[in-house]
Amino acid sequence: MPKVTYLHADGTEDVVDAQDGVSVMRTAVTKGVKGIVGECGGELMCATCHVYVLKPVNLASERSEDEDEMLEFAASPRRDNSRLSCQIIMDEPLDGLVVETPEAQN
C-alpha cells in the first residue's frame, strides 16, 4: 500500500498506509489524521482539504483550473505547492508522498 506522510504545524507527523484509488483527503479523514477537514466530501466546493505538497515537487503543478480557483477560498495562505488533497488520488507511483497541513482549514 502506498504511504502518505502528513506533517503538522505543531511539529508532529502521521505516516499512513493509503488505499489505492483513495484520495489523500479521504485517507486522512478515515484514519483520524488531524488538520484536514474535507467538509464537502471531496466535491471541490469547500477548500477545507488544503495541503502543501513537499514531495514529489511536480505534483503541485497538476492542479486543474477548478481546483486552482477553489484554492482561493483556502483559509491559510496559498503557496506554489498548494493542493486540495481531495483531488490527489493515491496509487503506487505516489508512494512516499509528503504533505504539510496548514495552520487553519476554515
Partner: peptide
C-alpha cells in the same frame, strides 16, 4: 455525510466507511 446518499453511495462507488465525517478516534482524542 448525507450528500453521497443520493450520489456516489447510492451508485455503490462509495462504501459506508467513506461516509464517516471523522474517525472515531478523533472524538476520543
Amino acid at each position: 455525510d448525507r450528500p453521497p446518499l443520493s450520489k456516489a453511495f447510492l451508485t455503490g462507488v462509495e462504501a459506508t466507511e467513506d461516509l464517516v465525517l471523522r474517525a472515531q478516534s478523533v472524538y476520543a482524542d
